[in-house]
Amino acid sequence: MTTKPAVIVFPASNCDRDVAVALEQATGAKPQMVWHGDADLPDTDFIVLPGGFSYGDYLRCGAMASNSPIMRAVVEKAKAGTPVLGICNGFQILCETGLLPGALMRNANLTFVCRTVTLMVENNQSIFTRGFEQGQFVDFPVAHHDGNYFADDETLSRLEGEGRIALRYVDNPNGSARNIAGLLNDAGNVFGLMPHPERVISPLLGGIDGTTFFKGALEAAA
């Protein structure tokens, strides 16, 4: 079990505290909170880019944040194999840095979608989804305006063939290509997803599928 997760905090991140609570629940220790303007990462073995609206979503969602000083260090760590998890705005940032292919566009129906959705675990062989059974259905909340995943057909077919679409929407809320909800990089150590596992870590919050998610991922990162 990793004990050194780090959460990157951008201006207008708003799920950083929630994800810190989820990480603490899984590891028993408070994670390190790292300001986006820092140039260096602390000693860490698991990095989280939290949800929110970094830089007010100016220009494109995640575009500014992907050029923050800390992101150079995050990209370097990711390329060296450190697990990096991007949730919601974090997923958008990962696409903007190029750590994940494709882009997240305005929802096809133009509405901000805020509700719990059911996802199917398409690949449980990743460090991020190993807590789940293959083919299991899990319920995570979504809350976004720009979750409509886009990539060209060739890329999509390659992602599909390589088992990198780890989570898929059962009932697509945003027009996302091939119902993609969560996507792995080719090495399997970078994962982006639009839904919020950190919002379902207690029966009081409506479920514990997020607890399973974080426990599995952090155990694997050890």
Partner: peptide, 9 residues
């Protein structure tokens, strides 16, 4: 190339 446009879309 670096910021203003995203070549993916």
């Amino acid at each position: 190339k670096k910021l203003l446009a995203n070549p993916v879309m």
